[in-house]
Amino acid sequence: MNPCRRKAFKHQCGAKSPPPAGAAPKKLLVLDVDCGVDDAQALMVALGDAARARVLAITCCNGNTHVRQVADNVARVLRACGASAQVPVFLGASSPLLAKQMDASPFHGNDGLGDSPDPPDPSPVAVKEQEEHAVNALVRLAKENPGQITLIAVGPLTNVALAMRMDPDFTSRLKELYIMGGTVEARGNCTMCGEFNFAADPEAAYVVLETCSCPLLIASWEFTVRNAMPWEFYDAWTTTDTERGRFVKRISAKSTAFAREPGRGSVELFAGPGFVPCDVYAVAAALDPDFVTQWAEHSVRVELHGALTRGQMVVDWMGIMEDRPLVNARIMVQCDTARLMAMLVAAVQ
């Protein structure tokens, strides 16, 4: 992208200067990922907003691909962002608690990042991959930073559920937990009623929603697709002529081709076509308090036994679950997509 076009592109997307240093305390982020394409995009947004946040650690779980590949994909993202030596990476759960492994390769590719390897790097910087298990690391980091960590979970919730079982006080030590996952209207994207992250490990999602004791904020599947960005934005964004821009274009090609097929899945059926980097919405909400413009506050649960509804997040719209608090989650409804586009633009500069 030439300089004039980039300037016009930033203006069109509402890109804003980052807040002055010291304007507010930086958020401490821990991201739990199953690093597919949208996880990678979400990591880039988090790493690209150093004025507002510091990525303390990245924990990896099985989901879009197997956990060893997830860690390798995280390493690729960190290298593309020049953060290889700065952020520790922890390997976690290698399988769901009880469920069978789901296949995400038609969308994310066999390797989780579009089956598009990076060009050879003559001097790669080693990633800080740790021997400590991700679940142990989550518990330890929460103890070391009580009330300070914003945990953003954008994959199956296996690691988070195990941390909660290992330490019943784990979530009470978190500042907040953001989740990308679940459905609010039973409009599934991998089963009839289930969103991938919840359907891939329903028991883990059940544990987290039943026993979380910190503020719980959820970006559902329907929320992300109803707040899609124009494909014209995506096309301009992926022509950014930087290392990060070229990386995004490479890894996103397969999933984009899949998503742009006419009538693809449930996106166009109820939201119309558009670019939907699902996991980025949770990161954007955690970074920018003004990003979400409308919330719904309700009690939520996960269905485990239904033959057609296993893994579905069920929202108590009427407040009839007498054994639960009236509200245990804030559910995102509407957002300012101009702010989201600005974050994505900043992430590839």
Score class of each variant (00 low, 15 high):
Ala286Cys: 12
Ala163Val: 12
Ala204Val: 13
Trp231Ser: 12
Thr239Gly: 10
Arg246His: 13
Thr240Gly: 07
Ala271Glu: 05
Leu217Ser: 13
Gly274Asp: 01
Thr242Glu: 11
Gly194Asp: 08
Glu185Asn: 15
Thr256Val: 10
Ala163Pro: 02
Met166Trp: 12
Thr211Gln: 15
Asp169Arg: 12
Ser252Met: 00
Trp237Ile: 08
Met164Gly: 04
Val276Lys: 00
Ala282Lys: 04
Asp201Gly: 02
Glu243Tyr: 07
Tyr178Leu: 14
Lys249Thr: 07
Val208Tyr: 00
Met180Gly: 07
Ala284Pro: 01
Arg165Asp: 15
Ala228Val: 15
Ala219Ile: 09
Glu195Phe: 09
Thr224Cys: 10
Pro215Phe: 09
Arg244Met: 06
Asp279Tyr: 06
Ala161Arg: 04
Asn189Tyr: 00
Val267Arg: 11
Trp221Leu: 14
Gly188Pro: 08
Ala286Met: 09
Lys249Asn: 14
Glu222Val: 09
Pro202Ser: 03
Cys212Met: 02
Ile179Leu: 15
Val267Thr: 05
Asp279Thr: 15
Gly194Arg: 06
Leu217Ala: 12
Thr211Leu: 14
Leu216Val: 10
Thr158Gln: 12
Phe196Ala: 10
Asn227Gln: 05
Glu261Cys: 08
Val184Asn: 08
Met166Leu: 15
Arg264His: 14
Cys214Asp: 02
Gly182Lys: 06
Cys278Phe: 06
Pro277Gln: 08
Gly272Gln: 01
Thr211Val: 14
Val276Tyr: 04
Glu195Thr: 13
Asp167Arg: 13
Thr183Lys: 02
Phe270Asn: 10
Met180Val: 09
Ala161Asp: 02
Ile218Gln: 03
Thr256Ser: 00
Glu268Pro: 10
Pro168Cys: 12
Leu174Pro: 00
Gly272Cys: 10
Val160Lys: 05
Ala257Val: 03
Met229Glu: 09
Phe258Met: 03
Thr242His: 14
Glu232Ser: 15
Val225Asn: 04
Trp221Tyr: 09
Arg260Leu: 07
Ala204Asn: 01
Glu222Arg: 04
Gly181Pro: 05
Met229Cys: 05
